[in-house]
Amino acid sequence: MEANHNRFNKCSETAWCPGCGNFGILNALEKALNELGLLPHEVVICAGIGQAAKTPQYINANGFNGLHGRALPPATGIKIANKHLKVIVNSGEGDSYGEGGNHFMHTIRRNIDIAHFVHNNQIYGLTKGQASPTSDMGFATGIQTQGVVTEPLNPIALAITLGASFVARSFSGDAEHLKKVMKEAIMHNGYALVDILQPCISFNKVNTFKYYKERVYHLEETYDATDKQKAFKRAQEWGDKIPMGIFYKQKKPTYTECVDCLKKGPALVDTTEDLEKIEKFMDEFC
């Protein structure tokens, strides 16, 4: 494998605005996959619907562009069917935490081996600028004309509370950091959430590139990512200073390790049918 060859590059024209944070995320993802030595046919990129969710369109890998809010369930089905595939979800925060909130909760509980990259621009981009579950209070839109009155969801704190085994934050404007966190998330055994701050240059005039750039900082090198209480505490920081990095990481059995046949047997897709055994099931009805 040539070190500099980008195997995942698709050279496609995108539907993203020039300067959109999605470009930085796509670049980091391609770099991470290349550096991990993966091949396009070994990887499936899943997404729901939204601007972020167009990622599978622009990368040379297997792709599942499903329904809005429903990126995680097919990703789960794919991983159960073929545990050898690297399954990655790239989708927006509206898709992941709003429409798909129930799946977010339960995929964490399953701890299935999927890396979940949430492109969090604090807005619904594709539908042209409505509030998202992470929009700050007071943020005015064409719908929330007097500003958002509901409290924003804190994905990092929520994921930690729900028992996620890998919880991180990064920023589309910090290419090196993002790539590094992505690599760790992909290699993590279990469900890994990376909430990726991303400016939306067209519809979010508050949380701009400059806004994030001025506020984000890396969790200190001495930070202990195995301490759940501390992780929860640091997850509360938001506003003038926004910490980035791996907040929490924990070794725990994955779905595949808990389901006997997935743990011990070949991938489900490679198993054969035992019709003779199934025919004998009829004896129970005699």
């Binding site: 499936v44 429903r70 369930p73 097919p74 089905g77 159960i80 069917a81 897709v269």
Partner: peptide, 16 residues
């Protein structure tokens, strides 16, 4: 049930 059918479709896409 939304997850149920979406999971089924995912598994089916992957050949099961």
């Amino acid at each position: 049930e939304i997850a149920a059918l979406n999971m089924v479709i995912g598994a089916s896409y992957a050949g099961v």
